[in-house]
Amino acid sequence: MNLLFYISSFVAVAATILAITRFHPVHALLYLVVSFLAAAMIFLSLGTPFIAVLEVIVYAGAIIVLFIFVVMMLNLGKDTALQEKNWLRPKVWAGPCLLVLILLVEMIVLLLNAPDVTMHITVVDPRKVSLSLFGEYIIALELVGFLLMAGIVGAAHIGKQKKKILHRFLN
């Protein structure tokens, strides 16, 4: 279980680094799938199998399929990769990376200063999760329903193709 956690977290970090540095959108998406599957393995080693299954179905399934459909519809190919290669110069990414890494080091130092506790992994089964979800969190669950409804209506409205309105000089 211990080794499983370390291997999967290494794979997750490596795949995420590769995903944010690729030039071709499809390659980035494939590394993103690997990153999500490794995150599912981390969830499994934390004793939450329900969340691991949801991660595979929703993140590595539904969300990635949405991204791949958009990449296919926009026909992003070699031209986009070349353009990305022009945009991503060391002068562009060095400054933000340095500043963010300083913040990361600060956070790790803060984490390591706190007293360390060993994880006692016990499986929290979906039954307890659903009892909590439909008991004390029922209001939040209904709000999530509102949010998804707003998401559907918004996506259908924004994604609608409107008639192109030209300026009167161009008519």
Binding site: M1, N2, L112, D116, T118, M119, I121
Partner: peptide, 8 residues
């Protein structure tokens, strides 16, 4: 279990 909260 032998990994700690910090690691995660």
């Amino acid at each position: 279990p032998s990994f700690t909260v910090h690691t995660v």
